[in-house]
Deep mutational scan, measured.
Amino acid sequence: NITNLCPFDEVFNATRFASVYAWNRKRISNCVADYSVLYNLAPFFTFKCYGVSPTKLNDLCFTNVYADSFVIRGDEVRQIAPGQTGNIADYNYKLPDDFTGCVIAWNSNKLDSKVSGNYNYLYRLFRKSNLKPFERDISTEIYQAGNKPCNGVAGFNCYFPLRSYSFRPTYGVGHQPYRVVVLSFELLHAPATVCGPKKST
């Protein structure tokens, strides 16, 4: 009989979030998941669920729940959905087409922007091929755009693959930082360890 609440607040209220290319994953298990708490945590810009209804979450049980978190800019949030393409979905964080879970995003301009520009958040701009779903690539190998090998040196047709967002508070919403948490629900042929409040007794 599990009584402890799932530590969603640790994920959502973390002081620092990860850069999207090096997104963070927390496995959540053996706890009571009260998803209604999430609705009250922040004024969400996005709370979209796929393959599951957000209002039914509190009635369900899962084997595992994974919470992935990272920062992107406002106009990239739409890429965090099944079947999307674009720089983020292709080279940084890719959801599977049959994704079961929820994408939660909110504006973090007050936390993640600086007047002089916050350069701490990076994204991958160049990659030889698209990522597979939930693949994480943290390599910093020089990207070869031409025929000549780069031998690890940046220059003509040889690019450092990561680029930094420079978040400034005066930017338009599309270029402001957004914190994203992706909850993916895993149903294996194994005992369910993460249940809503109704199912945990």
Rank of each mutant, 00 (worst) to 15 (best):
V194F: 09
F8I: 07
N1I: 04
C31A: 06
V71M: 02
Y143F: 13
F17M: 06
L125K: 15
T140S: 11
Y93K: 02
P191V: 07
P197H: 14
E141H: 10
K132D: 09
D98R: 07
F47Y: 11
A33C: 09
N109Y: 10
S139G: 10
V77Y: 03
L41K: 13
Y21M: 04
L60K: 08
G101S: 00
G74W: 01
D34H: 04
L122C: 13
F160P: 14
Y91K: 06
C195Q: 08
A18S: 12
Y143A: 06
E186Y: 06
K199Q: 14
L183M: 06
L111F: 11
L38Q: 03
A89K: 02
T15G: 05
N87Y: 15
S184R: 07
K114Y: 10
S53H: 13
Y159H: 14
T15K: 13
K128I: 08
S200T: 14
N30A: 08
A22L: 05
V173N: 12
D68W: 02
S53F: 07
I142G: 07
R136F: 02
S113I: 05
V181M: 05
P149F: 07
A154L: 12
L57N: 05
N13E: 04
L162H: 03
S184V: 12
P43N: 10
G51N: 08
R25L: 02
V65M: 15
V65G: 11
V71Y: 01
N1S: 09
N64D: 10
P191W: 02
K56T: 10
V194E: 11
L131K: 03
I142W: 08
K132Y: 07
P54A: 14
K26A: 07
V181C: 05
R124E: 06
G174Q: 12
S139W: 01
K110I: 09
N107E: 06
R27F: 08
F8E: 02
S164R: 13
T55H: 14
W23F: 08
F126D: 11
S139A: 08
W106F: 06
T15A: 09
K48T: 08
A192G: 14
Q84H: 05
A67Y: 03
G152T: 08
F44Y: 12
A18N: 13
S200N: 13
F156L: 15
L122Y: 15
D68G: 01
N4K: 14
N87V: 15
T193P: 10
F17R: 02
P82W: 00
I88C: 00
R16I: 10
F62Y: 10
N30H: 10
D9N: 12
K48N: 10
N109P: 03
A190N: 12
D97R: 08
V153M: 14
S69F: 03
V181H: 01
P133W: 01
S139P: 02
R25P: 02
C6K: 02
C61K: 10
F12P: 01
R73N: 07
V71P: 01
Y66Q: 07
F156N: 15
G155A: 09
Y121D: 04
F47H: 06
A192P: 14
I142P: 11
C102T: 00
K198Q: 13
S53T: 10
E135T: 05
V182Q: 00
V181N: 01
Y66V: 12
Y165F: 04
S19N: 09
L57C: 03
L162Q: 03
Q176M: 07
Q144Y: 03
T201I: 13
L5A: 13
V65N: 02
N24L: 02
V52D: 04
N13H: 08
A192V: 13
N24S: 14
S184N: 12
I138G: 07
R124S: 04
N92R: 02
L95H: 00
Q84Y: 05
G117E: 11
Y35R: 06
D90H: 06
N64C: 12
I138M: 12
Y159G: 08
N107A: 06
Q84I: 07
D90C: 05
D9W: 10
T3A: 08
I28Q: 02
I88G: 01
P96H: 00
P43W: 04
Y39W: 15
D68N: 01
R179Y: 05
A42H: 12
L57I: 09
Y39P: 09
Y121M: 06
G155F: 06
R27K: 14
Q84F: 04
P177I: 03
N147L: 11
D98F: 03
H175G: 14
I104A: 06
N13K: 05
F17G: 05
R179N: 05
Y93N: 02
F47A: 10
P161Q: 01
L183Q: 00
C61F: 07
R136S: 05
L38R: 02
L131G: 03
R168G: 11
Q176H: 06
A18Q: 08
Y178C: 10
C195N: 08
R16G: 07
A42W: 09
L5M: 11
C61I: 08
F70Y: 02
N118R: 09
P43C: 06
T201Y: 13
V153I: 13
F45V: 15
A105T: 10
T170D: 15
K48I: 06
F70H: 02
L188A: 14
I2Q: 13
T140W: 06
I104C: 06
P82E: 03
C6S: 04
T3H: 08
D97L: 12
N147P: 12
A42G: 15
E76T: 01
Y50N: 01
L125R: 15
L183T: 00
N87A: 14
H189W: 07
S200V: 14
P133S: 06
Y21A: 05
D68M: 02
T170E: 14
L183E: 00
E135R: 01
L122F: 15
S129N: 13
Y121A: 05
C102P: 00
Q144A: 10
K94E: 01
S69N: 03
A81V: 04
A89N: 03
Y143N: 07
N157R: 10
S166I: 09
A105G: 03
P82G: 02
C6E: 03
T201S: 14
N118E: 14
T201Q: 14
G74I: 01
G146D: 10
S69W: 03
L95D: 00
S69A: 04
F62A: 10
L57R: 04
T63N: 12
G117F: 04
N92M: 02
V182L: 01
N151H: 12
Y21F: 09
K110Q: 12
G83R: 12
G155P: 07
V173D: 13
C150L: 04
F126H: 15
L60R: 08
L131S: 03
I88R: 01
R27P: 06
G152D: 09
E135G: 07
K94S: 06
V20K: 03
Y123R: 12
G196A: 11
T193E: 13
S184A: 09
F70P: 01
V11H: 03
R27W: 06
G152C: 05
D112P: 02
F44P: 15
D9M: 12
G101Q: 00
V181D: 01
Q144P: 08
H175Y: 12
A192R: 11
L183W: 01
A33D: 04
T140N: 11
G174D: 14
P133V: 03
G152I: 05
Y39R: 14
S200Y: 12
S139C: 06
R168Q: 14
T3P: 09
